[in-house]
Each structure stands twice: as structure tokens, then as C-alpha cells.
Design a binder for these strands. Sequence first.
DNA 1: CGCTGCCTTGACCATGATCAACGCACGTGG
DNA 2: CCACGTGCGTTGATCATGGTCAAGGCAGCG
Lengths: 243, 243
Amino acid sequence: MINSAHEVWIRQLERSTPLLDFEREALRAVPVKVRKLEPHTDIVCDGDKPTQCCMIIDGFCWRYKMTSGGNRQILSVHMPGEMPDLQSLHLTSMDHTLASITRAEIGLVAHQSLRELTRRFPHLTDALWRSTLIDSAIFRQWLVGLGARTAYQRIAHLFCEMAVRQAVGNEPAQSIVLPLTQIELGDALGLSAVHVNRSLRDLREAGLALVERGVVQILDYEGLKRAGDFDPGYLQLQFVDRA
Amino acid sequence: MINSAHEVWIRQLERSTPLLDFEREALRAVPVKVRKLEPHTDIVCDGDKPTQCCMIIDGFCWRYKMTSGGNRQILSVHMPGEMPDLQSLHLTSMDHTLASITRAEIGLVAHQSLRELTRRFPHLTDALWRSTLIDSAIFRQWLVGLGARTAYQRIAHLFCEMAVRQAVGNEPAQSIVLPLTQIELGDALGLSAVHVNRSLRDLREAGLALVERGVVQILDYEGLKRAGDFDPGYLQLQFVDRA
DNA sequence: CGCTGCCTTGACCATGATCAACGCACGTGG
DNA sequence: CCACGTGCGTTGATCATGGTCAAGGCAGCG
């Protein structure tokens, strides 16, 4: 299989950090246990003390946290190649839950293996550290969205971010996969499903983006960028979306 | 001076990661340029590509980001011993601004020095990486607050967090320093100053906390915890607030 | 003494939440 | 093949949390 776990992982890391041949080889040597998951399956839960990390090979995952009042805040959405719980390598207990969204294939990597990798290859340590820092930068952007932007702006910003994160070449994706219902979008953006629906209609009527069955058609990327006050710099990608 | 830059830094790191003698010595050997700052002075700005990191020796700092609409979102508040822009070691450009809040003393550390440190002392790499991961965990909590909690709950949660982060022994601080005006609290919590004022009045009338001139008196920590749905686990401290 | 910044309170407004109903697509079983 | 259930999207009506506008008080400072 060409899209093996390791290749997907390496490709994702190289989106932000160039690697050398021997480093790619070192990554390929890391033992990975592959698992298939049904949709909406928890992988590691809030409070767990995991001894392994999860790499997404195929499908989508998210991280979320429940409040005591029963509200769910979705913290992030993840796609193949990403390791959403890499922080567990250095934080003993989970402060949120990681789960699959769609049917998914994941690879489990023992903390021990990752620790050996970081001891032997300082530049890979940097690359992995860097990936957690980008994760953090994305949280900061979401924070700005929830604290200082309107519903319409938040959605536009999210669509831009996903378009860039799902870019294949140097161009943001024209149509992006976003396997969230409107209820779930609301839980991610701090909005009610009804209001998400209305804002999506507004985006459609403004000719910016069109959503159907988990796929977002970007009709006017530049317009969306303006609407969402989006600047892709925080994603720290090698290719840059210059516009 | 007993509270030198290095000692403050080491003490802060040891709140979450125990260090060995030779590691403390290695930290003490890192060259630090000390600077004094007036209140509300930008240290590194959104878009900058710094070649050094900033350690807080005395006083308070924050990180914030402006939206195109002129809104300011305060992302975090930092105190002595912390290195709020450590992420710049691995992310080329700043996605937000770091500034002093109060009059402050900071120490500048060249990226080069930190990189050498991480190459020679893997366990210090872990400790520094870990500190950026805790930073990230705090962002996640703020995200939950802005997305899923009411004004009253957000403020209660913030007070709890600051009480624990400012703890001296094993107990959360009884009175915490929070040098923010109500306008600034609003910018941190995604609220208007007027609404912050009213929520503070509610907290006071509920007998939970009392705010005056940058100092918060915690009247009922357990009550605040309940009100803010606060669980200190995400701060990953060595001592634990068991209650 | 008077400015300035911050806190406080009141009155009114708006973004977005809640409640409710309906349509539609899809899946399942009779 | 159709009847039914279920989950999701859509829309309308009403409500509320929190925003905006405005004004006055008070403390600190030049």
C-alpha cells in the first residue's frame, strides 16, 4: 500500500518542516499498530493517562471537551497525517477527548518509540515540537474567533483554514471535506445549529461558499478571506498562499 | 540579587517538571540580557521574526491579537518565570503580539542559546517543550470558556486559574494579582466592560470573589471552582489541588 | 484644581439562543 | 415496494444574554 501510515505522517510533517533522507528512514522505522474505527468513536478520553499517541491515517478526527453543564466544545478538527494527541508524550493526563468523526484508520505509536526517536534525532524532535506549536497557533486563532468575531466571520475563517490545510499543491482547496453536521459546526464555533444554518445561508447568498453533505465548495476564496479576516501565516506552511 | 532571572526561570520550570542539579546549572549558564520595560510596551509584534525569546523576571505580560475590525483579543496573561514567546524558537513568524502589562523586567535569551541547550540536554528539551504544551492546554480551556460558558462562569474560571498559577505553597493563592482593568478583562473574555462589571458585582454578591485595583480576593475558592467548572488538571502542576 | 482614566449604573438594542414545526433523504423492515 | 422512523436541514416566532450608548462619580496626578 502506497499511502501507508508512515508516508502519510511524513508528508504531513514535511508540509511545515523539510526532512532529510535519514530522518524519513528513522520515521519509517517507528513501529505503528494500525486500527480501524467506526464513526464517532472515542480514542483517548478526558482524564486518561495514555502511553501511546494516535496518528490519523485515513478519515477525520476531532478533539472536544464537555462542560459540567453538558455543553460540548469542539476544540479542533484533524485529518490524515496529523497526530492530535502528541501532547500526551509530555503531559501525563488528557484534558480533553480525542475521537473519530468519520470511519477512520489510525496508527498507534508507543510513547517509548517517540521518546527514542527524539533522543536520537534532534531535528525530528524539532519537527514534532513544531507540529505541537502549530496546533497551539490554531487554538489561538479559534480563540480570537470565539472572542472577537461574529458567527458569519467565524465560519468564513474556518472554511479558509480548512481550505489551506487541505491544499494539495500550492493553492487552497476548491472543495473541502468537512464532515460536520450543522449541530457539530455549532459546537465547534460556539453557536447554535439554527444560527449556523442562517449564517451558512448568508455565505451562500453572498456567493462565498456552498455546503452540502460534508463538502464545502469554496466559490470565492478571496472573498472568504476578507469576510473571515483570514491570514494563513499562523499555519506556518512551507508553500505560502500569497494573495 | 537572589531572585535573579535564572532562579525565577528555574523555579517556574520546576513547578511542572523536576530538574537535576546539572540541568539547573546548565540553565544558569544561559546568557540573558535584562531589560526594564514601561507598562503596556510591545515586546514582539504580530508578524515579527524574532531571533530571541523573552523570559519574564518581574511584572506581568500578556499576548494579544487585533482583528481587522479593530477588536483586541487578549490570549493569555503571563507572570514571572514564564517564557511566553518560546514558540518563536520553532515558528518563524509571530501570529500575535507579546507586551508588558505592568512595569516589568524581562530577560532576552538568544534562540541560539536555547537551541544549544536543547541539543545538549534532552531532558531540558522535554521540560521546555512541556511548558509550551501547558500553554496550549490553557488556550484550550479559554476556548471552552469563550465557546461554551457564560460571562459569570468565564470570570470564575479565570480567577481559579490565576489562583492556582499564583499559588506559593500547595494551596491556591487567597489574593491574586490580576493587573487588568475591566475593559481589558472584557478583551480577554470576549465580553464588554459593562458586562464584566455586572458579572463582577454578581460574584461579589454571591460571596465568591472581590476585585479592587488589580487584586482579586478569593472569598470562597470551592464556590468559585463550582461556578467556573474549574479543574486544575490541565495546568499539570507537581503539587495538586485536591479537593 | 481640573483633567483623565476607570468604575458604576441605567436605558435600550442586537446578535444569537431557544422553541417549535415541517420537509426531505435515507435506511430498515414488513 | 411502500410505510415508517430517524436524523438533519430549514424556517418562523419569541426570548435572553450580553452589547452599545450615555451619564455621573471617584481617585490619582500634574
